[in-house]
Design a protein around this nucleic acid. Structure first.
Length: 615
RNA sequence: GGUUCCGUAGCUCAGUUGGAUAGAGCAACUGCCUUCUAAGCAGUAGGUCUUUGGUUCGAAUCCAAACGGAAUCACCA
């Protein structure tokens, strides 16, 4: 096993790895090519790049010879031909070669494929990389306690959870944290509206989930606020001024002050509403299937960071202006001056984030930290990371902002105050309903208990939703059209889940038939191209984990899993498995199917998706 | 205006450490269930990879400019 670091995999002998389990084979081929170039053309090639052969051509690996035409002083096709002959003569893994223009396509011996398959079978840990003995903190979710979760939070939570799973599989020790924004003027707005219009309503009395109840009053505040602004404007007050003077806003500001001074009645209301919201969030998280090792609350952390400001001033990193406010000059980094402490000595956003970073380091001692936060905060995190570096913090080098794009609706951006949001709970429920009706239509739940069917509907509905949100490159903004339901066919979660269930069905049957699916080592098998391609993908799994971990990109795993399921279904359609008469072929195909099922299950779990055994 | 990100089929997205005829899914159309789950498979059709210029044997990919979209540039969080 290779020592893997945080940085992209460093090639051992200036060779580009395409694959993990096949790395040895590749290196052997690259070495032969290097020798061939030396022997035939006296070319000392520093770097041998192998790529996957395109589907429409025969072969597994392709070597491009164009770059060597000048040095070899021969036509590309001729170089490829000579190299191919050399390879065939000098490397026993090569079965055949084909030359297309300047491309040398190499095919592997069947025994090599069997060797790979046996290797995976014998791997004690086929679905995870070796322990890296390194801790990584990941912060995600970060909800506000004044409103329920929406579609954007779903992307955040699924991303955060999936990246945690991926890093865990890549051998890191992962600590999942959630920093809840439970204080501030926006929280006071919903508190105030509740006080004014709530009439003592509770989740129990209203039948509303706690977070939805609180969210209702956040909207109510905004409505009342707008009415007041309008009234003021009619009285001839300037609109901008009216926004500042609306009585209800002033009252909310008063409330924030009272909260900061720990006024018992305000604190009691705040705690009451917080309890409701947290209770609601807990239900949403359970339905999403995400979890946290530690939840931090801003009400506990917002005063942190001032000590770091003092440290920074002492170190000369920060400077104090005449009015007493404290700043950092980041113009050398291409940024501006940034405030880190107000003139009245209170913290700002960045101050508390500095403090929280320190606190998390004290709690867990992790030098790596991933923040899953929307891309509207790119600038903020750039500044934060610069500051931590300048403060010379030991945990300052391993910070990464996993910045993801917004989820847009066809009508544009979601705005919670204007009610144009897709609610997370509603959407999940709708997906589960759709899964239910789809499944019923297909008549797939014969012999299921009510409990089993409900579990399946949940797995499929959430699977479709998670896959939909995770298959897209995180940094891109994406479009969600509520009018068009999320598909259950094609490049979707349920398609992959279906493939898994199909395989399970087959292995159950094989077990009842008493078939031994072990591969006899030393026996020679003839393999179809479909089988080779499937083995290639299976052998690629670990390198995909590494790739996804390096890039913090669940989309890499999603794409891989889809390709694997697609390839399996092709294989399944083309070749008989249980009905195959040749016992050796039957056994190796069954082995291949079973391994595919396990790999699908493992990779779906990296996306937080459950792989049902029947559907 | 400065900075950053994005622009690929009608729609949603892959592909971007330079390589062959740019790939999937959805939607449309055609086949395949008296043999292992048809939520499947095979196929048809759909592209000036926003535009222009450059780098080179070779560019969706690298560079420059333009156009279009988004985010951000608060003593808010």
């Amino acid at each position: 096993m290779f020592a893997l670091n945080w940085l992209p995999l460093q090639p051992l002998i200036s060779i580009k790895p395409v694959d993990f389990n096949m790395l040895g084979i590749q290196q052997s081929i690259q070495k032969s090519l290097q020798e061939g170039l030396q022997h035939l053309f006296s070319i000392d090639a520093q770097e041998i790049v192998l790529q996957e052969t395109k589907k429409e051509f025969e072969g597994t690996f392709t070597f491009v010879v164009f770059p060597f035409t000048k040095q070899a002083a021969k036509a590309p096709a001729q170089i490829a031909q000579l190299l191919g002959e050399y390879m065939l003569a000098h490397n026993t893994k090569i079965k055949a070669f084909q030359v297309v223009q300047g491309f040398l396509n190499l095919s592997l011996q069947d025994s090599v494929w069997v060797e790979i398959l046996v290797g995976i079978n014998q791997d004690a840990q086929p679905f995870a990389l070796a322990n890296k003995n390194e801790k990584v903190l990941i912060e995600y979710s970060s909800p506000n306690t004044n409103k329920p979760l929406h579609l954007g939070h779903l992307r955040n939570n699924f991303l955060g959870f999936s990246v945690s799973q991926i890093l865990d599989a890549a051998g890191y020790e992962v600590v999942k944290t959630n920093l809840v924004n439970d204080r501030g003027i926006h929280i006071c707005k919903s508190m105030l509206a509740y006080q004014l219009f709530g009439n003592g309503e509770t989740p129990e009395s209203s039948g509303l989930k706690g977070d939805h109840l609180v969210g209702k009053y956040y909207v109510a505040f905004d409505k009342a606020y707008k009415v007041e602004i309008e009234t003021l404007v009619k009285q001839g007050i300037d609109p901008e001024e009216a926004k500042k003077q609306a009585p209800i806003l002033l009252k909310a500001q008063e409330m924030l002050l009272a909260w900061e001074q720990n006024e018992p009645s305000v604190i009691a209301l705040w705690e009451q509403m917080n309890t409701w919201v947290f209770d609601g969030f807990a239900k949403s998280y359970a339905q999403m299937g995400v979890s946290f090792d530690k939840i931090y609350r801003e009400s506990n952390t917002y005063l942190l960071g001032k000590k770091l400001v003092d440290e920074g001033i002492a170190q000369g990193v920060f400077f104090r202006k005449d009015d007493g406010s404290v700043w950092i000059d980041l113009s050398a980094e291409g940024l501006d001056e940034k405030l880190v402490l107000r003139r009245d000595g209170t913290s700002v956003y960045i101050t508390q984030d500095m403090g929280t970073a320190q606190l998390k380091y004290e709690d867990f001692g992790a030098k790596r930290s991933v923040y899953v936060v929307g891309n509207e905060q790119d600038y903020h995190f750039e500044v934060l990371f610069h500051i931590l570096k300048k403060l010379n913090k030991s945990f300052s080098e391993g910070n990464y902002h996993l910045s993801y794009g917004m989820v847009d609706l066809p009508s544009g951006k979601m705005k919670s105050r204007e009610g144009t949001v897709v609610d997370a709970d509603d959407l999940m429920a709708e997906m589960v309903n759709t899964a239910q009706s789809r499944t019923m239509e297909l008549g797939k739940i014969d012999g299921f208990s009510a409990e089993e069917s409900n579990a399946l509907f949940n797995q499929l509905g959430l699977g479709a939703l998670k896959y939909f949100l995770l298959k897209v490159d995180p940094k891109k903004r994406m479009l969600f059209n509520p009018e068009e339901s999320i598909d259950f066919q094609g490049n979707t979660g349920p398609f992959i889940q279906y493939t898994h269930a199909r395989i399970c069905s087959m292995t159950r049957k094989a077990a009842s038939m008493g078939i031994d699916m072990r591969i006899s080592i030393g026996k020679s098998y003839e393999l179809a191209v479909t089988e080779q391609e499937l083995i290639y993908l299976l052998g690629d799994y670990k390198s995909k984990i590494q790739e996804a971990a390096d890039q913090f990109a669940p989309s890499v795993i999603a794409q891989y899993t889809y390709d694997l399921a697609k390839q399996f279904n092709k294989f399944y359609n083309e070749l008989s498995i249980l009905n195959e008469e040749n016992e050796d072929s039957r056994n190796i195909r069954l082995n291949l199917a079973s391994l595919t099922g396990e790999t699908i299950k493992a990779s779906l779990s990296l996306l937080g998706i459950v792989a049902p055994e029947r559907m």
